[in-house]
Amino acid sequence: MANILRAIKTIVDNPISDLVSYYKGSNRINQVGDVLECFIKDVFADTVTESDQQRKLLRYSEVFSYSGNANNPPDLMLKNGDAIEVKKIESFRAGIALNSSYPKSKLFSDSPLITSSCRNCENWQEKDIVYAIGVVPLKRLKLLWLIYGDCYAADREIYERIKDNIGSGINEIPGVEFSKTKELGRVNKVDPLSLTYLRIRGMWGIANPLSVFDYLNLQVCENINFQLIVIMSKSKYLSFSAQERNQVESISATNFKINEVEIKHPNNPVQLLSAIVINYKF
């Protein structure tokens, strides 16, 4: 079954940093964001070197249960596996724009932000989510973060409380007719003729992983061709089969390291969470 450990091995076996040049000939894609998503899809499907588009599409159908769009999370879902959200930034320390979707420690099937196609693509209620954050200055992939949401974001109640409080506060303004929507809300009948309405839309963002995990001394190198950093909880790492863990742990590539660390728990910074960090450079 496709998973992040197999994806890591695929990345190490197929080191590519100039994604635009690599994909331009076969897929006719030159938008960096689209190319990054294609690369992530190929990495998890182990189709990076597959040139036959029909065979590639067949493999996608075997591996993924859902492929989304820019307006609704997630970008990808593995069959009976994790969800994946792909984000592109152009500098090493830029913040991550999440737009109308708050950060997620997990993805839930009852979320109003996902589509019915996503909700019904397989029988699921909750999925772990991986944030695949590509740093692509000058159209070259220099750094790829693969971070599980439960190491990066708080539980959804934290963010939904903010959203609900905003709605409650607006609703208390005299003379305002407020209605709930999939966004933060909507104010109706703004003018005397009740012709105008105001959409209230959240524009969420989250700090760059370099800032979030600055205490780990991850030694990000801006002058090398490519770097991969993976962060997951130790419990998640141990949930994979011993065979798959052994395959990753036996990778003999230069500058490939696996370390066990303690990270701040997103729900309570004074509580530490055992985690695994995988760092690879070429």
Score class of each variant (00 low, 15 high):
N223T: 04
Q219N: 09
A70V: 11
S241W: 07
F256I: 10
S111H: 03
E126Y: 01
F213M: 08
L216W: 02
Y66P: 09
Q53P: 08
N99T: 14
V86I: 14
Y215N: 15
D150E: 07
G169A: 05
E262M: 11
I258D: 06
L218M: 11
K139W: 03
S116K: 11
P112N: 05
I11C: 00
K281D: 00
D34Y: 06
E172Q: 13
L138P: 00
S211G: 03
L138N: 14
E183L: 11
E172W: 11
N217Y: 08
P269R: 02
R28W: 09
V35E: 13
M203E: 11
E122W: 11
L76E: 03
F108T: 15
G81C: 04
S235P: 00
Q53M: 12
Y215H: 15
N279F: 00
E249L: 10
E126M: 07
L144I: 02
T49K: 14
I173P: 02
K41C: 09
I278G: 00
S21V: 07
F178W: 11
N255C: 08
E122M: 06
P137A: 05
F282E: 13
L144W: 08
R93H: 08
K264V: 01
A242K: 03
T10S: 14
W204P: 04
E126A: 07
K104E: 15
N14Y: 09
N71T: 05
L58I: 02
S105N: 15
L57D: 10
R6W: 06
I8F: 03
L198E: 05
D82H: 12
P269L: 01
S211M: 10
R6F: 08
E244K: 01
R245T: 04
F92R: 06
D191A: 02
G95K: 10
C151T: 15
F92L: 11
N123F: 08
A7H: 03
V230K: 00
L195G: 07
M232R: 03
K142I: 07
M77S: 11
Q54A: 03
K41G: 05
P192T: 13
N208Y: 08
I96D: 02
V220E: 04
E262N: 07
Y237W: 05
I11H: 01
E262T: 11
N267R: 12
I200K: 09
N80W: 01
L218D: 10
K9H: 07
K104P: 06
L238H: 12
P266Y: 07
L76C: 07
S100W: 14
M203Y: 11
V130N: 04
I84C: 05
L5W: 01
V43H: 10
L76M: 06
S21L: 09
R6K: 10
P74N: 12
G185S: 04
R119C: 15
G95T: 10
L36D: 05
I158N: 14
K41W: 00
K234E: 08
W124V: 14
R119W: 02
D155M: 08
L78H: 05
D42K: 10
V63L: 05
I263Q: 03
Q243I: 13
I224E: 13
K180M: 11
L210V: 12
V187M: 13
V32D: 13
W145P: 02
